[in-house]
Structure formats: structure tokens, C-alpha cells
Design a protein around this nucleic acid. Structure first.
Lengths: 223, 223
DNA sequence: CGCAGCTTTGAGCGGAGTCAAGGCTCGTGG
DNA sequence: CCACGAGCCTTGACTCCGCTCAAAGCTGCG
């Protein structure tokens, strides 16, 4: 059962995918499990980084607290995503907070074990480098958007990205509070912009956090 | 002459520092040089990534163009820094722009060569991973600041970080235009905030882009 | 010396934050 | 099964930070 879960975890994660079966089996022996209920904290700023954390199931939000006490949502971890890597190579402490949004299962690999693994598998290091690149690009993108686009544009982008192809009926995966924090604004403003979009005939409100996107092209034009 | 420069470059760069003398010599054979005048473009979005680029001397700004055409300064490369994208395994085209701010010397290592190097030296891979971790943290930090702090706070932070210990007399390394782009605002606003700081007795203007910081503690309080 | 690009300053406006109050929703417990 | 309350969401009124536009000094380089 534990072993089965461990394997599932490893199968799930892109960074392990190009390893040989033997290597994967080896990794599997290093994995620990943990379950978190919705709302539970996985880690807190100031914690020592002792493990690489891989999300097997559920969703985790990573936030940072600014000097003025405001919470900023940095990104979400979905199944297959991992975290802690940034600090994993030096003794250091977490700079941010991880909170389970829904019931979540994670796999943990101890730092020393992971480092040994890395020393022996250059391919693994390359995979991580790739994952880094993606996250870097996404955070960079986010920064650019925040500093150059209006709230309206940012929200339009967010909607299109989040909805994907489910334009006919889709439910926001986050509360407005969290969307606001992600986009660098307030819940009130988000609420108002949604109303504006609806008034303009771009979206249709189905329920509180459920929408239909009527005019994706027009939304995209805001970009 | 070439060889001397190559060695200098390698000595300079943290990511190569923990390599053995033999390995360093090997790296040195792979290095090419290039010089850029101030204002010259090193690369442009859309270019193929053919080489890893290490700054030996000078300063390079990395920018991105937002959808609305506005330029956003992402970060600067100083001597010893290397450009991120090229270190990545998959990224094949540039996503952003590199421009020399002053006369700049760079060392280039062809992508394939560098990746072979990585395959063989886990230590090198770890070093890169580390450097990336830091950049990721710094970009993340920047995002948080941009979305949560006021322009005034951001500028205060920037000043303190940039001045370092030279509070008595220091010259801005960037034009106000670039500082504005970095902080996500306009040159006019930067100009006004500097005046406000001066009026409040926090700084003293010595010349156009030269200041004395009178009250670092008070500035830090804005944070 | 002259021009191009940077900087400074002013006036005016608008987007978005704050504060406050009322409506919804959903989970919990009586 | 319904009533209650906490936490969300929505809406309004008001304020203000920072952007835009415009014009006039600076500065440095050719």
C-alpha cells in the first residue's frame, strides 16, 4: 500500500519520468507519505527545508507574506508538481507558506537522500533544471503582467487560462479572495470586474463562482 | 590572450568554482569571447538559444516586452552572472531581450558543449541548480513586492539595496527610465518620489543621478 | 555648437483601494 | 431538519495614488 502509493507518486512526477525502472525503484524506497486536510498548513516561512515535497493528489497554494502583512499567492501546486527545490541545495529555510486547498496527499524525499540521488543521476538534475526553467518563466510572466497590465486585462487572462476549453460552464478553482491575491488586487475589485464583464456580454454568471464564457475572443483582446 | 581571458571568465563565475583544476581547464577550451558596446543588443526574443552566456565585464539588462508593448526590466546581469535560459535543457528560443548597458565582455559556451559538461559533472549541475534557486527566489520576491508595496516603498527598497554601504555618495547604475521599468512605474513618478524623499530629508541630491542617503533607517521603515 | 534623449515639473484625471453595510451559503450543532 | 453563525461575496460612496500629456530645462556626445 505504501509502496503502491510511492510508485504512483513517482510515475506522476515529470522529473522522474526519464529515469530507468531500476532508478525509479530506488527512488521509491526513499519516499515518505503524508496527508493533509483542506486548510491545513504544510509548511511555514522560517521552517528548515528538510524535504522535497511532491503533490500526489489535491491542491496546495504557495503564498508569501509581504512586509506590510499582505498575503500574496505565488502559485499553485497540482498533482505532479513539486516544491522545496529552490532551497534544497543549501541549508536554508522556507521563504513562503504552503497550505492545502483541498484534501491533499504528498510524497516527501529527504534532502540528503535527494542530493545523493542527484549526484548519481545527471539526468535527474537536468530534469529539475527544466522544471526550474518553467517555473521561472511562469513567475517572470506573472511579474511582467502585474507591472504592465491593468487589473481588467489580468483578470481576462486569468479567466481564459483557467477555463481552458470549458467555456460553456466552468467553476473557479479559487475563492475571489485568492484570485485577488494572485492578481495583486482586492476581492471587491474582482467582484466588480466580473460584473463589468457580464454587463459587456463577455461572460454569463451561472452561480456564485460558476460562469459561462460567451466571448473568449473579445476577452483575449484585452490582453 | 584568448586563453587568459577564458581563465579569467571561469575564475569569475561561481558556478565553476567548485570544479577541479582539470575540469576548469577543460571548460576553458570551450569558451568563446565577444565584446559589446553600450546599447548593443546581445540577443532578441525569438532568437535560437545557441550558447550559454557569462558576463565577464560590464552590465547587461534583461527585459521582456508585454502584450501592450511596454518594456519590463526583469533583472541585470553583472560580472559573474550567467544568463538563465541558455542553461536550460529544453528552451530553444529566447523569450526576452539582452542589452548591454555599458561596454561589456561576455564568454560564450556552446549549448551542446555545456550540456555535455553538465552530464558529466553532477557538481556543476548542483551549482547551476543553486544559482537558479536564487534567481527564482529573487524574481519571486520582486513579484511580491510589486503587487503588495506602493511605489514609494519599492523605490526605498531599491535604493537601499542598490546603494549598499555607499550611503555617503552613490550613483544610480540605471537611468530613471530603467528604474521605472524595473519597479513597474514611470520615470515621472520616480523623479517625483526622489524629490519627496529629498524634501523629507531622507536623501540629498548631489547631481542628476547621484545621491547621499541621509536616513537609511527611515527609508527602511517604508518597507 | 546643436540635437537627441533624459529629467524635471505641473495640471488633470481615472482606476483601483478602503471602509462600511447588507446579502448569501454552507457547515455545525441543537 | 431547521436555525445559527462564520466567512464569503456584492455593492455603494469616497479618496487618492500614480498615470498621461505637455512643456521646459539638462546633459552629453558627435
Amino acid at each position: 500500500m505504501m509502496v503502491h502509493d510511492a510508485k504512483a507518486c513517482i510515475q506522476l512526477v515529470p522529473i522522474f519520468q526519464s529515469l530507468s525502472t531500476k532508478e525509479k525503484a530506488e527512488v521509491a524506497t526513499l519516499v515518505r507519505h503524508h496527508h493533509f486536510a483542506a486548510g491545513e498548513s504544510l509548511f511555514t516561512a522560517g521552517d528548515a527545508v528538510t524535504s522535497l515535497l511532491i503533490v500526489a493528489h489535491g491542491q496546495v497554494k504557495i503564498t508569501q507574506i509581504a512586509a506590510n502583512g499582505k498575503e500574496q499567492l505565488l502559485y499553485l501546486l497540482n498533482p505532479g508538481d513539486f516544491d522545496g527545490e529552490a532551497a534544497l541545495f543549501k541549508a536554508s529555510t522556507r521563504q513562503n507558506f504552503g497550505t492545502a486547498l483541498s484534501a491533499t496527499d504528498v510524497c516527501l524525499i529527504r534532502r540528503e537522500d535527494f542530493q545523493k540521488l542527484l549526484q548519481r543521476s545527471p539526468q535527474l538534475a537536468l530534469n529539475i533544471l527544466n522544471a526550474f526553467g518553467q517555473r521561472l518563466a511562469s513567475v517572470t510572466e506573472q511579474t511582467t503582467r502585474t507591472t504592465t497590465a491593468s487589473i481588467e486585462e489580468r483578470l481576462a487572462m486569468y479567466l481564459l487560462e483557467t477555463a481552458g476549453k470549458n467555456t460553456a460552464d466552468f467553476t473557479l478553482p479559487l475563492k475571489k479572495k485568492d484570485i485577488a491575491s494572485y492578481l495583486g488586487t482586492t476581492p471587491e475589485t474582482i467582484s466588480r470586474k466580473f460584473r463589468d464583464f457580464a454587463d459587456a456580454g463577455l461572460i454569463k454568471k451561472l452561480a456564485v463562482n460558476r460562469f459561462q464564457i460567451l466571448d473568449p475572443d473579445q476577452l483575449a483582446l484585452m490582453e
